[in-house]
Amino acid sequence: NQASVVANQLIPINTALTLVMMRSEVVTPVGIPAKDIPRLVSMQVNRAVPLGTTLMPDMVKGYA
């Protein structure tokens, strides 16, 4: 199973992502692939993302 990107903490709306905010985990449904973590750094979330939430492409500005 492919690992997805999961929030390692509460990420407030419009926050630029950093490595410490994200972890990889095998979850259902599948979200953004963990291999894309380096690409996500500095991108902003367009909503508040609670701890443990799988990041989906529509949550990150400029990803999709």
Rank of each mutant, 00 (worst) to 15 (best):
A3L: 12
S4K: 01
Q44D: 04
L10F: 11
K35C: 15
Q44G: 05
A7M: 07
G62A: 12
P38Y: 08
V30T: 12
S24W: 05
D58A: 07
T15L: 06
V6I: 13
K35S: 15
M21D: 05
V60K: 00
A3G: 08
L10D: 08
A34Y: 07
M59V: 08
I32V: 06
Q2A: 11
T18L: 05
P38K: 05
M21F: 05
L40A: 00
D58W: 05
R39Q: 11
A64G: 12
A34W: 13
T18G: 05
V5Q: 01
I13A: 06
L10H: 07
D58P: 09
M56R: 07
A64L: 14
S24F: 08
M59P: 01
Q2E: 15
S24N: 09
P57T: 14
M22R: 00
V45Y: 00
N46T: 14
P33R: 04
V41N: 04
V6T: 07
V60H: 01
R47S: 10
N14Y: 06
T28C: 12
G62H: 11
D58Q: 08
L10T: 12
I37W: 03
T15M: 08
Q2I: 14
N46S: 14
V60C: 03
I11P: 01
Q9A: 11
L19K: 07
G31C: 03
G62P: 05
Q2P: 15
M22E: 02
N1M: 15
L55D: 01
I37T: 10
K61I: 14
V5L: 03
P33E: 14
I37Y: 03
T53C: 13
S42H: 11
V6Q: 05
Q2Y: 15
T28W: 04
S24A: 10
N8R: 11
N14E: 11
L40I: 13
Y63N: 04
G62L: 13
S4E: 01
P29N: 10
Q44H: 07
E25N: 05
E25A: 08
V45K: 00
V60M: 04
K61H: 10
V20M: 10
D58H: 13
M22I: 10
A34M: 12
I13Q: 06
P50G: 09
R39V: 10
D58G: 08
M22N: 00
R47G: 12
Q2M: 10
N14A: 06
V45F: 00
R47D: 12
P57Q: 14
V27P: 02
L51A: 13
V41W: 03
T15A: 08
N8I: 05
A48V: 12
K61M: 09
R23D: 11
A48E: 10
N1I: 15
A64M: 08
R47M: 12
V5D: 01
L10G: 10
S42D: 07
R47Q: 12
M56T: 08
D36A: 04
P12T: 10
S42W: 08
P38E: 13
G31S: 02
Q44C: 10
R23L: 09
M43K: 07
V20H: 08
P12M: 13
A48K: 08
M56P: 00
M43P: 00
S42R: 07
I13T: 12
V60E: 02
V6H: 01
R47E: 14
L19C: 14
N8H: 15
A64F: 04
G52C: 09
I37K: 05
Y63D: 04
V41L: 11
D36Q: 04
Y63G: 04
V30I: 07
T18W: 03
A48M: 11
I32Q: 00
P57L: 05
L51Q: 12
R47T: 10
Q9S: 09
V27G: 03
L17K: 00
K35M: 15
A34E: 15
N14K: 04
I13S: 12
N46A: 11
V49C: 08
P12F: 06
P50F: 11
S24K: 05
M43V: 04
P50H: 13
V26K: 03
I11W: 01
A3S: 11
V49Q: 02
N14Q: 08
P57S: 14
V41Q: 08
T54C: 05
K35V: 14
D36T: 04
V41C: 12
Q2K: 03
A16H: 06
V5P: 01
A16F: 07
M22F: 08
L51Y: 12
Y63Q: 04
M22P: 00
R23C: 09
K35T: 15
T18D: 04
A16S: 11
V26P: 08
D36H: 06
R23T: 06
R39W: 10
G52V: 02
T18S: 08
S4C: 04
N46K: 09
A48R: 09
I37M: 11
N8Y: 04
T53I: 12
P38F: 05
K61E: 09
I11Y: 01
R47Y: 12
V6F: 02
M56W: 07
L55M: 12
A64W: 04
P50K: 09
L17H: 00
T53A: 14
Y63L: 07
N1G: 15
M56L: 12
V20Q: 09
L19I: 10
M56D: 06
G62M: 13
M59Y: 11
M59K: 02
A7S: 07
R23E: 07
Q9P: 01
A7Q: 00
G31D: 01
R39A: 11
A64K: 10
I32N: 00
V27I: 11
L17I: 11
Q2W: 12
L10K: 07
V45E: 01
E25Y: 05
M43N: 06
L40K: 00
S42E: 11
P50A: 11
L10P: 09
E25I: 03
M43H: 08
A64T: 14
V30S: 12
P57A: 12
D36G: 03
A64H: 11
T54K: 04
P57D: 10
G62I: 04
A64Y: 04
I11V: 08
V41E: 10
P50R: 10
P50I: 11
V49M: 05
S24L: 06
R23P: 02
P38Q: 11
A48C: 13
M59H: 13
N46Q: 12
V27E: 02
V6N: 00
V20P: 09
D36M: 04
V5M: 02
L55F: 12
V41P: 03
N8P: 02
T28Q: 09
G52K: 04
L40D: 00
V26E: 15
L55Q: 01
V5G: 02
A48H: 10
V45R: 00
Q44T: 10
L40G: 00
S42K: 09
V45T: 14
I13E: 14
V5S: 03
K35H: 15
P57I: 10
K61Q: 15
T28D: 15
Q44I: 09
L10W: 06
A7K: 00
V45C: 09
M59E: 03
